[in-house]
Design a protein around this nucleic acid. Structure first.
Lengths: 181, 181
DNA sequence: TAGTTTGTTCAAGAATTATTGAAAATTCAA
DNA sequence: TTGAATTTTCAATAATTCTTGAACAAACTA
């Protein structure tokens, strides 16, 4: 007897492999498996896929598809594409890594960093209330460390975007002008 | 009646605030709350803290402390420090952002990327089995996209490390030699 | 408008992950 | 050794997060 896993609408092995990669990737950035599956499926597809094609290919519930697509649209990881002669929405995967990372940074990272930034200012105030002067001095020192971390992060982000982006420049090394920005 | 939350071993507000920041940070990188709490507590401490001091300050179970410290030691985010006249281990927080990120990259990121890399090679093989030549060509195109993403990532990592690291170079802009590496 | 197709929402259940604490292991001192 | 102090392990429980699918809403068509 050969393989197991052969439901009606089975899927090429290479596609299952790619989807698995995206499931892991989703997991790595804190998104649910279903989101990875949907993106992976669209990534592999040769043509735009409709809602119900996704449901059939992936064998997951309508609810998951709907929510997953919502997240992916929001991130800019999928786009709706009009398909002539069909009332249904059809989706395609965004293939630009820059777009994908930008969406993630905008929706997941920046809000966290911003609220962290607010909290850090509050901590700064709270430290004033520390009665023990020696502990207060120590706390201020730690605060400086946190602020320096914040500064590093803020330097880093645009740099990352630049490297992921256009990228005519910076081929490897050699040439004298490995400038950034 | 003033505040609630005043158990015997209460904690300065600024420290609670800093710990909250680290709990969020832990969450962001996929680590449990308890790990963030422990690191945050050590980060704020003026002197090395023993196992049971952590237990008392944070009011979490021995099991969580033990496992949390294990993770943090493994990441290189805390160090054991010998304290004269005590049998207990004492811990201090690693304050170098470079060390912290390196630990994270080494323990969490690289293993994922490596196994992804292996999987990607397998996918490359599986694509050969695709019978339909036109789909096979399409699959190869997608594979190239994935490989290019991988390449970008590999370029990026050392760059990030450099920016987080030593950093005499690259003050802001201005000077003509904003070289990296 | 009535009926059909398409997509969303959300409460309940399933699955996963984190925490607890008692028991076991380890380490040191006498 | 024996016993006390310290830490780890791990099975049970708690908490959180994900998925499902039925009911609902929206949009079209005839």
């Amino acid at each position: 007897m050969p393989e197991v896993q052969s439901s009606k609408t089975s899927m090429p092995d290479w596609e299952a492999g790619v989807i698995e990669l995206f499931v892991r990737g989703a997991n790595l950035v804190g998104l649910p498996r279903s989101v990875g599956e949907i993106y992976g499926c669209l990534f592999c597809a040769k043509t735009p896929l409709s809602f119900d094609r996704l449901e059939i290919r992936l064998q997951i519930s309508r609810g998951s598809i709907s929510q997953g697509l919502k997240v992916l649209r929001q991130l800019g990881a999928v786009k709706v594409q009009y398909v002539a002669g069909s009332r249904k929405d059809h989706y395609i995967a965004e293939l630009s890594i820059l777009q994908l990372v930008q969406g993630f940074v905008r929706d997941q990272l920046v809000p966290h960093l911003d609220s962290g930034s607010v909290r850090l200012k509050e901590v700064e105030t709270l430290i004033q209330n520390e009665p023990d002067a020696s502990i207060r001095a120590h706390a201020k020192q730690r605060l400086r460390t946190l602020l320096s971390w914040q500064g590093r992060g803020q330097k880093l982000l645009p740099l990352v975007m630049t490297v992921l982006g256009g990228n005519k420049l910076l081929d490897s090394d050699q040439g004298s002008a490995n400038r950034i920005i």
